[in-house]
């Protein structure tokens, strides 16, 4: 067991940059973020890194560690025994500096999600089994790792066409709430662009909260969209009823 870890951290900004190597003394149980902080305190005061809680609750310290999107606070360095640990910023968002990216696009999308819309007043009567399903979505810490890995956003840069996995989860949270009465299906299909997701489950695989993003949020929403817009039997009756307008199918 070596008495130090070797880190190779991206240093740079929108004009470019490169990885710089740092050596950090081993402390038992240390995580990647501890090592980055050590570098900051001793070698590079201006090393930019975003973090808050260091307990995997806030979702601030997202980065790509040896190419895999992860939270730095939850990634133990001893997983990389004997290797150089490469730390890069998230690729899907514009870089600000070093490990910090401009994630403001996510907040723009967030504003487009219509608020929770109950038609009865709290306190609600709901059983635990009514809410188990949506409570899973409430585990989201908005680290945006799912947005980072989503190839629609990452490789095809379709940010104007698809809200991304995070916001499908948010949509599902309200859509499946027993008390919500808003009709969210047209938005999920149209502006939300759920059809662009082709279910590769990359988002699920990187989620530090282990939310089954694809299986429990996106696929059920796709089914609701399909029921509404593409079910031939429903369509037939809809046409009989003279309600052919796509945005107002029912």
């Amino acid at each position: 067991m070596a008495d130090e870890f070797i880190l190779s951290i991206f240093r740079g900004d929108a004009d470019g940059g490169q990885e710089v190597e740092y050596r950090v003394p081993r402390v038992e149980g240390m995580v990647v973020l501890d090592a980055v902080h050590h570098v900051q305190a001793h070698e590079a005061q201006d090393l930019a890194v975003r973090w808050n809680c260091k307990a995997a609750h806030c979702g601030s310290c997202s980065a790509e560690i040896n190419g895999v999107p992860k939270l730095m606070c939850k990634t133990r360095l001893d997983e990389y025994e004997g290797q150089t640990v490469h730390i890069q910023p998230m690729k899907t968002f514009p870089i600000i500096k070093d490990l910090v990216t401009d994630v403001s696009w996510n907040y723009e999308v967030a504003k487009k999600i219509p608020a929770f819309h109950p038609t009865v007043a709290a306190p609600f009567r709901m059983q635990q089994w009514d809410v188990d399903r949506i409570q899973e979505f409430h585990h989201c810490i908005e680290c945006f790792l799912c947005q980072d890995v989503c190839h629609v956003l990452r490789d095809h840069q379709e940010k104007s066409q698809y809200y991304g996995p995070r916001f499908m989860v948010k949509m599902a949270e309200f859509e499946m709430h027993p008390m919500d009465r808003a009709d969210r299906i047209p938005q999920i299909k149209n502006e939300g662009g759920i059809g662009l997701c082709n279910v590769t489950k990359c988002c699920t695989s990187v989620c530090p909260q282990h939310i089954h993003i694809t299986d429990n949020a996106i696929i059920p929403l796709k089914e609701r969209v399909a029921d509404r817009y593409y079910d031939p039997i429903r369509n037939f009756f809809r046409k009989l009823g003279g309600k052919g307008d796509e945005s107002q199918p029912e």
Partner: peptide, 19 residues
Amino acid sequence: VLELEQWGAVFDRTPEGRI
């Protein structure tokens, strides 16, 4: 606390379905 439920917070439930 009850007002938060109106805004979308989903608390754990009692067997009677309350917070």
